[in-house]
Computed example of a mutant assay.
Amino acid sequence: MADFECRRCKRPVRVNRSHYDVFEQMHYVCFHYEFEHDAFSDGDPDEDCGVPGCPSAPAIRQEERLATTVRALLDDWSDGPPANWDNHSIPDYLAALLSRLENANGHYASRGTPIQWNSWEVIQELLRAATVGE
């Protein structure tokens, strides 16, 4: 197995090895702080920059975003089954959600993005994704 070393911190890259080149041969966190974080947070690494997956984001913000997503999904049903959903019953929706959960790696790979490190964001994305057929 070839060594994957982060070009920023020089430590081994293990978790996101499949996205080593996407993250310019860095850990996701190193990539984020190198290219994304400063553009949104005036350079303070401890400040939540607002970019989804920001390692500095407090967990409460992620919980609130997930709650907002669930409220929006519930609002979609305020006048009956939503026309823009493929799954119009709870069993169909839950079956689609289960499929998305079991195939999360494929879901992200088909979009060309790595799996989010933050489980709150993964749940939020998969809840939305289960509204449509695969």
Results as ranks from 00 to 15, higher is better:
residue 1 M to R: 10
residue 3 D to W: 07
residue 3 D to G: 04
residue 4 F to E: 07
residue 6 C to P: 02
residue 7 R to G: 00
residue 8 R to L: 13
residue 9 C to Q: 10
residue 10 K to H: 06
residue 10 K to S: 03
residue 10 K to I: 04
residue 11 R to M: 05
residue 11 R to A: 09
residue 12 P to F: 03
residue 13 V to C: 03
residue 14 R to D: 13
residue 15 V to L: 09
residue 15 V to E: 12
residue 16 N to V: 11
residue 17 R to M: 06
residue 17 R to V: 14
residue 17 R to L: 08
residue 19 H to Q: 04
residue 20 Y to T: 08
residue 23 F to M: 14
residue 24 E to H: 02
residue 25 Q to E: 15
residue 25 Q to K: 07
residue 25 Q to D: 02
residue 26 M to N: 00
residue 26 M to I: 03
residue 27 H to L: 06
residue 27 H to E: 14
residue 28 Y to G: 01
residue 29 V to G: 00
residue 29 V to N: 09
residue 30 C to R: 03
residue 30 C to M: 08
residue 31 F to K: 02
residue 32 H to Y: 06
residue 32 H to I: 04
residue 33 Y to D: 01
residue 34 E to I: 02
residue 36 E to F: 05
residue 37 H to L: 06
residue 37 H to P: 00
residue 38 D to K: 00
residue 41 S to N: 12
residue 42 D to Q: 11
residue 43 G to P: 08
residue 43 G to S: 10
residue 43 G to F: 06
residue 47 E to F: 10
residue 47 E to M: 05
residue 48 D to H: 10
residue 50 G to L: 09
residue 50 G to T: 02
residue 50 G to V: 01
residue 50 G to S: 10
residue 51 V to F: 04
residue 52 P to L: 07
residue 52 P to T: 02
residue 54 C to N: 07
residue 56 S to G: 14
residue 59 A to E: 15
residue 59 A to V: 10
residue 60 I to C: 05
residue 61 R to F: 07
residue 62 Q to E: 15
residue 62 Q to C: 05
residue 63 E to M: 08
residue 64 E to H: 01
residue 65 R to P: 00
residue 68 T to V: 06
residue 68 T to A: 10
residue 69 T to F: 09
residue 69 T to E: 15
residue 72 A to Q: 12
residue 73 L to I: 15
residue 74 L to H: 12
residue 77 W to T: 15
residue 78 S to M: 10
residue 80 G to N: 12
residue 80 G to H: 13
residue 81 P to T: 14
residue 82 P to L: 02
residue 82 P to S: 11
residue 82 P to C: 05
residue 83 A to V: 15
residue 84 N to S: 07
residue 85 W to P: 07
residue 89 S to N: 01
residue 89 S to F: 00
residue 92 D to E: 14
residue 93 Y to N: 03
residue 95 A to W: 12
residue 95 A to H: 04
residue 95 A to P: 06
residue 96 A to H: 04
residue 96 A to I: 04
residue 99 S to D: 15
residue 100 R to F: 05
residue 100 R to K: 05
residue 101 L to T: 10
residue 102 E to L: 13
residue 102 E to W: 08
residue 104 A to Y: 08
residue 104 A to C: 09
residue 104 A to W: 11
residue 106 G to Q: 12
residue 109 A to K: 11
residue 110 S to K: 03
residue 110 S to R: 11
residue 111 R to D: 14
residue 112 G to T: 13
residue 113 T to V: 13
residue 113 T to P: 00
residue 115 I to K: 12
residue 116 Q to H: 13
residue 116 Q to N: 09
residue 117 W to D: 05
residue 117 W to F: 11
residue 119 S to V: 12
residue 119 S to P: 11
residue 121 E to M: 03
residue 122 V to F: 06
residue 122 V to L: 13
residue 124 Q to F: 04
residue 124 Q to K: 13
residue 127 L to S: 01
residue 128 R to A: 08
residue 129 A to M: 12
residue 132 V to I: 11
residue 132 V to R: 11
residue 132 V to W: 14
residue 133 G to C: 12
residue 133 G to H: 15
residue 134 E to G: 05
